[in-house]
Design a protein around this nucleic acid. Sequence first.
RNA 1: GGUCCCAUCGUCUAGAGGCCUAGGACACCACCCUCUCAAGGUGGAGACACGGGUUCAAAUCCCGUUGGGACUACCA
Length: 475
Amino acid sequence: MSEVRCRFAPAPSGSIHVGNARTALFSWLTARHHGGTFVLRVEDTDVSRVTEEAFRGTLESLRWLGLGWDEGPDVGGPHAPYRQSQRTAIYHEHAERLMAGGHAYRCYCTPEELEERRDQARARGEPPGYDGRCRRLSDAELAAFEREGRLWAVRFAMPERHYIVHDLVKGEVHFAAGALRDFVILRSDGSPVFLLAVAVDDMLMGITHVIRGEDLLASAPRNMAVIEALGGTLPQYAHLPLIVGSDRQPLSKRHGSTSVEAFREHGILPEALVNYLALLGWSYDDQTTFFSREELIERFDVSRVSSNPAAFDSDKLEWMNNHYVQGLDDEDLAARVVHFLAGAGLLVDPGLLRRAMPLVKERMKTLTQAVPLLRFLFTDDVEPDETAAAVIEKAGPGYLADAAEALDGVGTWDRASIQSALDALAGEAGLNRTKGWQPVRAAVTGSTVSPPLPESMELLGRDRTVARLRAAAAR
RNA sequence: GGUCCCAUCGUCUAGAGGCCUAGGACACCACCCUCUCAAGGUGGAGACACGGGUUCAAAUCCCGUUGGGACUACCA
């Protein structure tokens, strides 16, 4: 059996979206599962919409997800270049071949005329597609258009036959003869349209599996027709259902930040996002939820992808993220968290940060949540928030002064001794731990929510702890 | 309008005719654990869109209805 070659072909019109990220993942997994090649091809035929920044952002997002490619715009490969904007000569050559073979023709209709006829057809309740008139131009008409100096586009002559797409996800999808109209493959300014570029590139690059969004299902027969007209071999197609939001509408900006970059900045781990995305539309069995990258590669099968659209559930993503956070060792976690603390303007002591990791691991759904939890360690500006202030006030200055004295007198500054001291303090005041410790927590951390108190104080150190208690007592 | 896709708990899904009084996970509720918040443990509520067929037997096959969605460009 020949080698599997799978491609991901993003149009870099912005940062990469989770829907595209999932498409990339499934393509990558298919390539890796078969020990094949993963090709990255950038579809920037509409040059006006593509910025260099969007291009780089796309590559960066894929790298962050760990979806490395074997051939692509930066690494090259046997079918370079891998940016469609650099392949125009190739498309022209193939458009010529199609015209020479009678599979394509010059279309002299202007965009204005086309639009007008579309509107009319719609008004009459007829299908609005191109009527194919330039396909049957007489020599005289053709000459007349040329004399007028009219610009022409190249249109592909869609064969009048029934097409069947053998889709790996959808099964057999039929398109009746005549259902698809002739389409433009070269604009009147000579630039190629993606319907040509995709087919030509998939053919030339030897792509065996085309995995992409369901929105492109209707273009599959057109791709097939072009490849057949060119005498190429057809790839297998797999069209993935769309990802929708909680309102069942296709995911868009309205659903908040859905780009890979946004999740990264929100403190989602790439391994968690990959695992979550893998399960959005695909499953291995009725039990398994967590998959290592190797397990995913071993078990993934695109034909097991379900054909109904999946709703993106950020609660589940965050739950899964927490699972991966808990699985990280302290060193690794600290290295990932430091970016977010620094971003909040905190000056971080790496050793202290690493030692704090066990206290916050299971309290973080996202890495950003480490910031409020650990802020008290990396700044002495712990102005109590509203609820903390209320707790402090209720306890009264005497209680906090007592706390300061008790802790100052602790023999060895470790969590066991601190805990005994806190218990003794609460006991003398006739309070249980909950009531007795909260004022101390509020004074020391500035919040009523914190990592476990004795451990937190141990890390903070005796001096800073006592100073904060005295400051609170003096208010 | 036309073509195409889709339809199991709120969500992601298991289910490829009898194993289903429909399984798991997130979320939700209760309890346990507990210094706050989490995490963890135990338990609970919760679904085959509807209507016809086919069959001894249908969540599973067929048809229709309804409801979502995509496409219908000299965008990708």
